[in-house]
Amino acid sequence: MATINFDSELRRAGANATGGWGRLAFLAQRHVLGTVGLIIMLLFVLTAIFADLISRYDPLTVDSAHRLAPPSMLHWFGTDSFGRDVWSRIIHGARISLAVGIGSTTLGATLGVIVGLASGYLSGWVDLVFQRVTDILQSLPLLVLALVMTAALGPSLPNVILAIAIPLIPTVARVIRANTLALREQPFVEAAKSIGMSEMRIALRHVLPNTIAPLIVLATAQLGSTILTEASLSFLGLGIPEPYPSWGRMLSESAAEYVRTAPWLVIFPGIAISLAVFGTNLFGDALRDILDPRQRG
């Protein structure tokens, strides 16, 4: 039998990780990809917050003298057909993506929790109605549904957030409902009933707090797809209206015309979208492994 270094084995198992920071450092070491994802997400958030400081030009200023300039020291990512600085537009575009991502995920998750909790906890006809509505919503692709909604509501930031949030509701509601159904059978819920607690209090005090972990996992996983949906909507001209810089719109404006002559107009927004989605997905996966190991698969 090979000799075993007990200390290194223990370090690998995380035995020396003490305190909040120690534990965090251990998790970061254990989930390298998740850490990478977290760093990307942090960069993304910081970029959005400090966009005005990082960007070198105003993203909306048109400069006809420098139209379609290739990347240079002056314009790191080049300029577009109006002479606007691509670097600055991408930096500011992070704001839009983040606002839509967080806004629609939060809205969708909140509504989804309410529906899922009510559906799972009340059961009976409430459940039946919610379930069938969910089925109908889920039979349509996320993008198509969002498309129809923005087309109906008109393009604006709140409308885009709403349009992306609504198709999220069934996904969240499903998970919360399944969780609620399982929790309802737990003896601690039965114990709560036996002391004469009202159904409402049981749902809020005993069931809801125990669905938080899967909810966080799910919401993080959905963040990437909401960013992607926003980009797609904008690409199709139904997202954030001009002149605000949205990564999706930047792509659509340039893709057909300039993909050969000015490829930087396509490459950089494309990388921005992929990186943001990639980062949230990596982080979401790691979070799932840490918080909810049963869902791994």
């Binding site: 003896p187 601690f188 709560a192 707090p209 125990n210």
Partner: peptide, 16 residues
């Protein structure tokens, strides 16, 4: 009237 259950792990809310 009160009850004590079999499974002492599942009969307590883990978040309280």
């Amino acid at each position: 009237m009160q009850i004590v259950f079999q499974d002492p792990f599942a009969s307590l809310n883990p978040r309280m």
